[in-house]
Write a protein that binds this DNA or RNA. Structure first.
Lengths: 158, 158
DNA sequence: TATGATCGTTCATAGTATGAACAAATTACA
DNA sequence: TGTAATTTGTTCATACTATGAACGATCATA
C-alpha cells in the first residue's frame, strides 16, 4: 500500500512537470501567433484585438471596450488614438449623452477586421485538420476539462 | 453526399470557433497566473523567469540566458541589472575569457527561485488533482496532440 | 441649483522587447 | 607576430503594453 502510494506520487510528479512544460509550449505558440499576426496585418496586437471587437457590434464606448479587452480606460484611449490617426476608426459624441464617445470602424477598419477574422478562422481550422474526427472531439473536450480545472485552481488562490 | 459534406462543414466551423475560444481562455488563465506570481514574489515576471533558469545550472552567460528566454541580449542585460541591484544575482568575469560574464544567483536569489519552483509545482499539481486518473492521462496526451498540431500549422505559415 | 456620479482624457510611471552601434577581448590566419 | 574577423556584453533610441491618480465636462437627482 505504501509502495502503491509512492508509485502514484512519482507518477503525479512526472505528470505535473509534463503538464507545466506542455502548457508553456502551447502558450509560446500562441504568443508567436500574435507576433505573426501583428506583422502580417501591420498593427500592434492590442489594436488588432480592438478592431475584432467591432465584428459583433457597430458602436462601442470606451468603457465597453475597456471591459471587453480587460484593460484600463486610459489604455483604450491610447489604442483608439492610434487607430483613429490611421483612419481605422472614428469617435463621435453620443447625441443623447455628451459624456459618451461612440466608437465605430471606418470601412478601412472593417475590412481589416474581416481579414483578421478570416485569417484566425483559417489557422484554427488548420489546427483541427491536423487531427482526425475522433481526435478533434477529444481535444476539445479535454481542453475544456483543463480550462475548468484552471478556473477552479484560480479560485483557490485568491 | 452533399448533405453529408455540408453537415461536416457546419461541424468543423463550430469546432473551429470553440477551439479558438477555449484556447483564448486558457491563455488568459496563464497570463493571470503570471500576474499573480509577479505580485506574490514581488518581482516582474521576466525577472522571475530568469531566476528559474538557475535551478538547472549554477552559472549562465548573458548569451545563454538570452537563448533560453528567447529574447535579445540587450533585454537580458536590463533584467540582470535589476536582479543584481536587488542582490538576487551576481556577475563575475569568466577567468578563461574576459569577454564572458558568468552570472550566478546569490543565496537570496536561490531561495527565491526555489520558492517559485515549489509554488509552480503546487499549482500544476492542483490542476491535476482536479481530475481523476483517466482524465489526467487523456488531458496530457491531447494537449500534446494540440501542441504538435500547432507546431505543424506554424511551419505552414512561415 | 447644488451635488454626486459617470465618462473619457492626460500624465507619470513601469514593464517588455528589439536592433543598431559600440568597445573590449579573443581567434584565426597570413 | 601582427592584423582581420568574430564573439561578447553594454548602451541607447525606439516602440508597445499597461496602470492609476487627477481632472474637466456632462448628466442625474434631490
Amino acid at each position: 500500500m505504501n509502495d502503491h502510494n509512492e508509485i502514484n506520487g512519482e507518477m503525479l510528479n512526472y505528470q505535473t512537470m509534463r503538464l507545466r512544460d506542455i502548457i508553456a509550449e502551447i502558450v509560446q505558440c500562441c504568443d508567436d501567433r500574435k507576433l505573426y499576426e501583428s506583422r502580417k496585418f501591420g498593427l500592434p496586437y492590442s489594436e488588432l484585438k480592438c478592431l475584432m471587437l467591432f465584428l459583433g457590434e457597430r458602436y462601442l464606448t470606451v468603457k465597453g471596450i475597456a471591459e471587453k479587452l480587460d484593460v484600463a480606460k486610459s489604455r483604450v484611449t491610447t489604442i483608439l488614438d492610434r487607430l483613429i490617426e490611421k483612419r481605422f476608426a472614428e469617435r463621435i459624441v453620443d447625441p443623447k449623452d455628451a459624456r459618451i464617445k461612440l466608437i465605430s470602424l471606418t470601412p478601412k477598419g472593417k475590412k481589416k477586421a474581416e481579414q483578421l477574422k478570416d485569417h484566425q478562422r483559417k489557422i484554427h481550422g488548420r489546427l483541427l485538420l491536423e487531427m482526425n474526427n475522433e481526435e478533434r472531439k477529444n481535444v476539445l473536450s479535454h481542453l475544456e476539462l483543463l480550462r475548468t480545472a484552471m478556473e477552479a485552481v484560480k479560485e483557490q488562490m485568491v
